[in-house]
Design a binder for these strands. Structure first.
Lengths: 118, 118
DNA sequence: TTGACATATTCCCATATAAGAATGTATTGT
DNA sequence: ACAATACATTCTTATATGGGAATATGTCAA
């Protein structure tokens, strides 16, 4: 069996680099499909399929305007990912702190050993 | 072609729910493989394979202790994901703000229309 | 050395995709 | 109504897994 469907899991939907690229492009401003095609350098059907995935997991919203469809990133749908990664924040702080302290101890040792000589 | 290899992209490595589960379990405390097997309810070979993926992308570190291998989450490797999602933070704030303002306008309209009646 | 225990690796298979090509479907302008 | 424009969908195919089973590797204890 393979992993959970990209169509139901934001983590999986975002695992595809092109889709991240699209989400970044659509953050802030609406764009129609043709503009997205130009921006990401993929053919139109591929873009439409990626947009379909993003739409099904709620990562983008669509609005119709004549024969154009205007897409934009629904940033709120990324908040769960942000929250999940954030739950590790205190650990990477710990680790960075450890590295820093070790470096300081090492430096102190060097200092105590007196001036370096050729 | 399929997506970027799970072995080279942290986003993709984390797309698998079991691996997220493992990372959460290994955050803060070291655990050997048998403990992980019990914690996530998978068979040992599957766990070892997931750990292999996580190790190759740097999301976990290993330390050998006798015949045991102690794994722990390398939280720092999650920071890029945190940063990426965070770049959308101002947009979801905007959107939440819009929702809030619309609600307030609606409420004001209701208030102006006078007390409700049966 | 032998055996038990802890892990990793390999092989096989079913499934999920992503890209590419071709085709279908609206919607607008004339 | 008709052609053109803008997208979506379907079909096919090559590839990447994830799980299960079996097996290999490594390390400690007696």
């Amino acid at each position: 069996m393979a992993r959970a469907a990209t169509t139901s899991d934001p983590f999986n939907a975002v695992a595809e680099p092109r889709r991240r690229q699209i989400l970044t492009f659509l953050a802030g401003n609406e764009h129609d499909v043709t503009e997205i095609v130009v921006a990401v350098g993929l053919d139109q059907p591929s873009v439409s399929k990626h947009l379909g995935v993003l739409r099904r997991v709620g990562l983008v919203r669509v609005r119709r305007n004549g024969r154009h469809r205007l897409y934009r990133t629904n940033a709120q749908a990324l908040k769960p990912m942000h929250d999940w990664t954030e739950s590790f924040e205190r650990f990477w702080h710990h680790q960075l702190q450890s590295v820093k302290e070790r470096a300081e101890r090492t430096q102190a040792k060097i200092d105590r050993s007196g001036p370096s000589r050729p």
